[in-house]
Design a protein around this nucleic acid. Structure first.
Length: 797
RNA sequence: GCCGGCCUGGCGGAAUGGUAGACGCGCUAGACUCAAAAUCUAGUAAUAGAGAUAUUGUAAGGGUUCAAGUCCCUUGACCGGCACCA
């Protein structure tokens, strides 16, 4: 039995005292490796098993890379501002300010006790003024460059949380935090113009080594559609109605237009049925987002009497309707409805008895809309065109000639709603003067969050900062103004924190340019997949923007991305307090030790999969480490070679090295187990192998290996920078192998032969095996397939 | 509805188109022990057989191939994302 508590404490202290893992970022003499973890928000719950999982993986890779001679940057910090941290504080009756600091202390202790090799001299916290000075500075620049705007627009309002929310913070019409209802509301709000970067965020994905699923999620979220904008004249008035459509070629089937309820024209004075229209608008406005998008519900709408649109090609009059199935936030907020070839328009037309004109043959429009390809009919100049692509192109060309339309793209990606009417965030560094808005000068940053006793959200849409009257009302150059009282969302600080680790104390810029040039991009970014459309999109956008400004030298911040899977409870369900299936890292470290916990979480299965927890499995990892420790105490370690172990040793070095690089820790561990089993069987261990094996195990079990390295192998300093073992690929293969003999693909025999036996010899040996012989009896050999150094397959008839 | 992923023993899982089940857990038997734990040894996909061996077997069905867990098609279950996006 080894005493994990004593050994682990001792080495954790040693690493801290000796600053073993402090990175000299200015040392450019070695190849760099920047390996980044998604930093946690410091809730009072402390670390959970999922944190340990991802952080162990990145830590193991960091430790190997150091031993391989890389200058490794492996930092950690705190996503300390934002809704999660603030909600947690409110829930537990604490002030977020001190509470956050307290929680950070707990997290840091836990990370140290797990044996992670972070360089704590690079620690950052998003709620620290010296950090958020630069968050505000980036915002200021976004504003000056027209990418941050104060605009009147429909936003997501959550009454319960007392704030607006971004689209990625809403799941199925409810707030991600707390699951409260969210409604659409028109409000003046700070937004960041994500759509402006939509194309680049899409195109750059091709160059990133990211999981395909994450790329797909981002592609879907950006939701690029190519089509056309078509402008319809409205009879008798100046205003036109512009619609966006991906199928301009179906325009001869457009039998009505539909406007979103929020569309400007719904308030036009020539509308005859104003009363009914405003009644309809009122009903739709009180609906929550969830109700409005209920798919199962029947379509509703109302016809605008007194206004008709004109088809630009044939002058046909087209009625105009309002319906909430058209969204103001997508395209132009108006569509041309082609009921014959769009199911939604079809349902609407059926319900309100509107004409349905078939323009593409192939379906039966008496039953349903036909949305596939086919020959054009009833379509004037398009009737002779035989495919969709040409039809669309020709239509757009004609529209352009008539000056009635043009090619257009539309995105689902919307503005990032950037303000929160909450206390715990970076103050937006802007002042509202009577005539205009101004952002603060660099010299006025950071704009420090005022201390407030009562920081709780109000339900009237006002920020708690309104209460800090002295702070809000200011006079500048003789003009009276009011500070913006909204704060920034949680994702603000996390959109650029990876830059700050390079140079966390720099007071003059985000980070020294030379450092950014050397260290960026992040070589490997590890974290959960729940940030696929939030943080991972925002930070890409900010980085692209900073690249455009010449501040950051790379377009994309994270070259390679990896998501660890979730660790589930033993019952296969997500760990949660209410289900009572949560396991606590503190307890596990106390019982089994950090090394055991690390080994177990890496051995459970592939890093990327969700895996259920098992108590016996955690115990088994402890037993493996015991077995290793016992091996070094009981087996004879001598400075002389052992041919019986040579092959398995080289195989182990090769497999462990390759698997670590690919984050396949489960198979690396099983190979180390195979090696240990082989050594026990042999009863003897050459010194070279003994030392190398401890190096191989060190990244996953750093404490026990440091102990063995110094106490048993008698070295007088840390193993952290010892050279990583090398292997000889030739020595990984034996000189004999088990040749498999198949008859018609079924195994009929196996025989040991020497490597590189000739094909003829292989065939002859195969035919001599009794069981093969009897299978061949009386049969005709059709073909013999020989795979050198592997197998013989005899095909018979 | 659209997009992506996944499905292998009792369990976690392993398998560059070439011996399915590595490694570990659990279980069974044995050694050690007064006994237990720990440790060690052997066994452990199913069916039949004392055994050699044979047959079946990677969600279901089909296909390609000398050879399929792996490639292709169809279907199903589960997980995730988006969803009245024109």
């Amino acid at each position: 039995m080894y005493n994990h508590n004593r050994i682990e404490k001792k080495w954790q202290q040693y690493w801290l005292e000796n600053e073993t893992f402090k990175t000299d970022v200015w040392d450019f003499s070695k190849p760099k490796f920047y390996i980044l973890d998604m930093f946690p928000y410091p809730s009072g719950d402390g670390l959970h098993t999922g944190h340990i999982e991802g952080y162990t993986a990145s830590d193991a890779l960091s430790r190997m890379k150091r031993m391989q001679g890389y200058n490794v940057l492996h930092p950690m910090g705190w996503d300390a501002f934002g809704l999660p941290a603030e909600q947690y504080a409110i829930k537990t009756g604490n002030h977020p300010d001190k509470f956050t600091l307290q929680n950070i202390q707990v997290f840091k202790r836990q990370l140290i006790e797990a044996g992670f090799s972070y360089d704590w001299s690079k620690e950052v916290s998003t709620s620290d003024p010296s950090f958020y000075k630069w968050t505000q500075w980036i915002f200021k620049n976004l504003y000056l460059d027209g990418l941050a705007k104060y605009a009147d627009m429909p936003v997501n309002w959550c009454e319960e949380l007392g704030t607006v929310l971004a689209n990625d913070e809403i799941i199925n019409g409810k707030s991600e935090r707390g699951g409260y209802p969210v409604v659409r509301k028109n409000l003046k709000q700070w937004v960041i113009d994500m759509p402006k970067y939509a194309d680049r965020l899409l195109d750059n994905l091709d160059d990133l080594e990211w999981p395909t699923s994450t790329k797909e999620i981002q592609k879907n979220w950006i939701g690029k559609s190519v089509g056309a904008k078509i402008s319809f004249d409205v009879k008798g008035i100046e205003e036109k109605i512009t619609v966006f459509t991906t199928r301009p070629d179906t325009i001869f089937g457009a039998t009505f237009l539909v406007l979103a309820p929020e569309h400007d024209l719904t308030k036009h004075e020539l509308i005859k049925n104003k009363k009914e229209v405003s009644e309809y608008l009122e009903i739709t406005q009180t609906k929550s987002e969830l109700e409005r998008t209920e798919l199962s519900k029947e379509k509703t709408g109302i016809k605008l009497e007194g206004l008709v649109a004109i088809n630009p090609f044939n002058g046909k009059e087209i009625p105009i309707w309002i319906s909430d199935y058209v969204l103001i936030s997508y395209g132009t907020g108006a569509i041309m409805a082609v009921p014959a070839h769009d199911q939604r328009d079809y349902e609407f037309a059926k319900k309100f008895d509107i004409e349905i004109i078939e323009v593409i043959k192939g379906g039966d429009i008496a039953i349903e809309a036909y949305e596939k390809d086919g020959q054009y009919v009833n379509s004037d100049f398009l009737n002779s065109v035989d495919n969709k692509k040409d039809g669309i192109e020709l239509t757009i060309n004609k529209l352009e000639e008539l000056k009635k339309g043009e090619k257009a793209v539309s995105y689902k990606l919307r503005e990032w709603i950037f303000a929160r009417q909450r206390y715990w965030g970076e103050p937006v560094p802007a002042i509202h003067f009577e005539d205009k808005i101004e952002v603060l000068d660099d010299s006025e940053l950071p704009l420090v969050l005022p201390e407030l006793e009562d920081y709780k959200p109000s339900q009237k849409g006002q920020s708690p900062l309104e209460k800090a009257k002295d702070w809000v009302n200011i006079e500048k150059d003789g003009r009276k103004g009011r500070r913006e009282t909204s704060t920034m969302p949680g994702s603000a600080g996390s959109s650029w924190y990876f830059l700050r680790y390079l140079d966390p104390k720099n007071e003059n810029e985000i980070a020294d340019k030379k450092l950014m040039e050397h260290w960026l991009p992040v070589d490997l970014y590890l974290g959960g997949d729940e940030h696929a459309v939030g943080h991972l999109l925002y930070s890409r956008m900010w980085n692209n923007y900073l690249y455009d400004k010449g501040i950051v030298p790379v377009k994309e911040p994270f070259k390679k991305l990896f998501h660890q899977g979730m660790i589930l409870g033993a019952n296969g369900e997500k760990m949660s307090k209410s289900k009572g299936n949560v396991v606590s890292p503190d307890e596990l470290i106390q019982t089994y030790g950090a090394d055991s916990l690390r080994i177990y979480e890496m051995f459970m299965g592939p890093l990327e999969s969700d895996k259920p927890w098992s108590d016996t499995g955690a115990e088994a990892s402890r037993k493996f480490l015991e077995r290793v420790y016992r091996l070094y105490q009981t087996i004879k370690i001598e400075d002389k070679p052992n041919n019986n172990l040579e092959r398995v040793y080289h195989q182990t070095v090769m497999k462990v090295t390759n698997d670590y690089n690919e984050l396949k820790f489960n198979t690396a561990i099983s190979q180390m187990m195979i090696f240990v089993n082989a050594v026990y069987k042999e009863g003897h261990l050459p010194l070279e192998y003994a030392e190398s094996f401890i190096k191989l195990l060190n990244p996953l079990a750093p404490h026990i290996t440091e102990e063995i390295w110094t106490k048993i192998l008698k070295h007088n300093h840390t193993i952290a920078y010892e050279a990583w073992p090398s292997y000889d690929e030739i020595k990984t293969v034996s000189d004999t192998y088990e040749m498999v003999v198949q008859v018609n693909g079924k195994i009929r025999g196996k025989i040991d032969v020497s490597m590189n036996t000739s094909k003829e010899e292989m065939e002859n040996l195969a035919k001599e095996i009794p069981n093969v012989k009897s299978n061949l009896e009386g049969k005709q050999i059709v073909k013999i397939i020989i795979v050198p150094n592997k197998l013989v397959n005899i095909v018979i008839k």
